[in-house]
Amino acid sequence: MEEKVIVCKDLTKRFGDFYAVNKISFEVDKGEIFGFLGANGAGKTTAMRILCGLSHPTSGEAMVAGFDVYKQAEEIKKNIGYMSQKFSLYENLTVLENIEFFGGVYGVPYAEIRRRSDNLVQQLGLTAEAKKLVGALPLGWKQKLAFSVAIFHQPRIVFLDEPTGGVDPVTRRQFWDMIYEAAASGITIFVTTHYMDEAEYCNRITIMVDGKVEALDSPANLKAQFKADNMDEVFYRLARGAKRSGD
C-alpha cells in the first residue's frame, strides 16, 4: 500500500451560513500530482488554505504529511512548500537573496543554502542574473524561480495555487516539466488550475462544484465516465450546474 500524504475526511469550512467547503473527502498518495479544479468560488483556495494551516476548518478531519491540521499546524508548515497565485518573491531582492531568505526562514543551514542555490541557479540558467533584482526578470522566469524557491527546503508536499496564471504556453510547458521532475524526486504536488490542458498532466484530479467534490479520478477515467473527448467537456458538464460564481 502506498503512503498517503494527505487524508481529508468530511472537511468543512463554514462562514456563517455559507459553506465554502462542504464535507470534502479525498486522499493523496506520495509523489502524486494531484489536480484541484473548480470554477471561481468553488472553494479550491479555501480547501488549500486549510491544508496549509492558513485557515482552521469548521469540522471534519485532515492529516497533512502525517500531522493533524487542528493540532500540529507548526509541524505541517515545516513539511510543506507553498506558491500562491500572486507572484510572491521580493522584487527588490536579488535572485540569490530571495533564495537565501526563504531557505533561511525554513531553517536550511547556511552552507547547504549556498551549495543548493548554486546548483539551482545553474539549472534555471540564471547564472548571469543571480545577482540581479528579481523585479527585472521576465514573468516566466519569475514563476519558475518561485516554484524552485517553494521546493528549496525539500518539503514533502508542495501546494501550488494557480501557479501558471498569465504565463505563456511555452513557459507553462517548461513549468510542468519542473513539476514532473519534483514529483519524480518524491515531492507530492497539490495544484489548483483553470487550464484544462494542465488538468491532463495530473495523475488524478478533483473537480469541486459549490464547495463539494463532484468528481475524483484520473483524467482518462473521468473522460470515459462522462463520455467526453477532453477535460474541457468534463469540467463544463459538472461546473455549469454551479450556483456560485465569482470569488
Binding site: C52, G53, E74, I80, Y82, S88, Y90, F102, Y106
Partner: peptide, 13 residues
C-alpha cells in the same frame, strides 16, 4: 499587498 505575507504565514517562521 504583494502576497508575500501569505508565504510567510505558511512558513514555519
Amino acid at each position: 499587498e504583494l502576497g508575500t505575507m501569505e508565504i510567510l504565514l505558511v512558513s514555519p517562521f
